[in-house]
Amino acid sequence: MSDPILSDGFTDVPHGKIVCVVTNLEMWARPDMTVLPAPPGVRLRHVSDPDPDWYRVLFRRVGENWLWHDRLECDDVGLAQIIADPAVAVYAVEIEGVDQGLLELDFREADTCEIAYFGIAAPLSGQGIGRWLMSEAIDRAWAKPIRRFWVHTCTLDDPSAVRFYMRNGFVPFRMQIEMTDDPRLKGILSPDAAPFVPRV
């Protein structure tokens, strides 16, 4: 087993950077579960050829408070290469005619599906929409001939995210440290995004 890259104790984070702990989780068999009915006024819509501008608006609506930023840094060509790939399935959670949630399933690795993005707009949390969306994600992923279904989350996400994934059948298998430029300081996200994460 190789030595850890970081030694025990504190490590200074350079100015302008943010750091999080990433938890990777997986499942190797479809769990015994029933797909939940959609809450009233809610539906999941497959977007077969996502427009990059539409995608960015929804991505920001769902993820800005959690500092989602990588897709916002892609140009139109780079973003389209991902979200228009036939092996990537993009879904919008439509609530009373407005797109308020995002599910993205990535089948580009053989025999595998990754939840690339999963979330709903913050004002809608606590209404059971997330549990329903996860049941849809599990059902749609295992409807394909996969052997492994996985996801990663981090300490910038909702604090209950790891427990949520574990309750739905995922098992942690790896932890990582990720450091990146603070997207608020780069102007990619609002300076007021994720006030729980200090800007240094």
Rank of each mutant, 00 (worst) to 15 (best):
L105M: 05
I82L: 08
M33S: 15
S125I: 09
L133F: 02
K144L: 05
R140W: 06
Y117E: 15
W54M: 08
Q100C: 09
L44Y: 11
M33V: 13
I120H: 01
E104P: 00
V42M: 12
G130Y: 01
F107W: 06
G41E: 02
E109I: 10
W66D: 14
N65C: 02
C74N: 12
L124N: 05
S125E: 12
G101L: 03
P52D: 14
A38K: 05
P86A: 05
A84D: 12
W54S: 12
P40G: 01
R108I: 07
E64I: 02
F118K: 15
W132R: 00
L44R: 14
D111P: 00
V90G: 06
S135Q: 07
L133Q: 07
G126W: 08
H69I: 02
R56F: 11
G63T: 04
D75C: 10
V77P: 02
D139A: 15
G97Q: 04
D111F: 15
E96L: 08
Q81C: 08
V77E: 15
Q127G: 02
L67H: 11
M33E: 14
A110L: 10
A110W: 00
L103C: 06
A143I: 01
L103P: 04
R71M: 11
I129V: 11
A87P: 00
W66N: 10
T34N: 08
W66I: 11
P86Q: 07
D76W: 00
V42Q: 10
P50E: 10
R108D: 04
L67R: 10
G63H: 04
I95Y: 09
I115C: 09
L72T: 06
P39Y: 00
W68H: 04
T34E: 13
G126P: 09
G128T: 01
D70N: 13
G97L: 04
D139N: 14
P86L: 04
L72N: 06
W66R: 07
P123C: 07
L67T: 10
I83M: 03
C113Y: 07
Q81G: 14
G41F: 01
W54H: 13
H69A: 15
G128I: 01
C113R: 05
D85R: 12
L103F: 06
L105N: 08
R43A: 06
A141M: 10
R108E: 11
D75K: 09
R45P: 06
D99E: 12
A38Y: 04
R71Y: 15
L103A: 06
F59V: 07
I95G: 00
A84T: 14
A84S: 11
C113G: 08
I120E: 00
E136T: 01
A87I: 01
Q127L: 11
